[in-house]
Amino acid sequence: MIRTVLVVAGLGLGLTAVMAQSNPIAERQQIMKAVGGATREGAAMAKGDVAFDAAKAQTVFKTYADAAAKMPALFPDSSKTGGETTAAPKIWEDQAGFKAAFVKFGQDAEAGAKAADLASFRTAFGAATKNCGTCHEVYRIKK
């Protein structure tokens, strides 16, 4: 009896681990969390709360570019619901627009990576983070 329970529990654990690896909802939420973290750092520099640091600025835009590259593939048809996702149905109704939004975000991130001083960083950071609201407005539901 105990052995059966252990085996079942073991199987359950194994399955959970596999699912976490191929769980696009968890993965995209993780990426977005990283984007949020980068934005926190960027905003602190843009506002002058911390000193401008070119290397740090590069990291911010690198995080954005990575997200823009990875995100579009993380919305398979099987991931429309579950995992407290706030993905809007519009993503699957308008794949072209959704992908185009990430292309633009990627371009803005790339342009930002060239910023070498505070003034140009501010401009580029403002342009890149504008994508957050415009994309979320259409492709994300309220939460």
Binding site: G36, R40, A88, T129, G133, H136, E137, K142
Partner: peptide, 20 residues
Amino acid sequence: KTGFTPSFDSVGGSMADVVR
């Protein structure tokens, strides 16, 4: 002003428009 929450999540849906 910016649509960012304290954890730098950016609000979605019609709240994004409200922020505008």
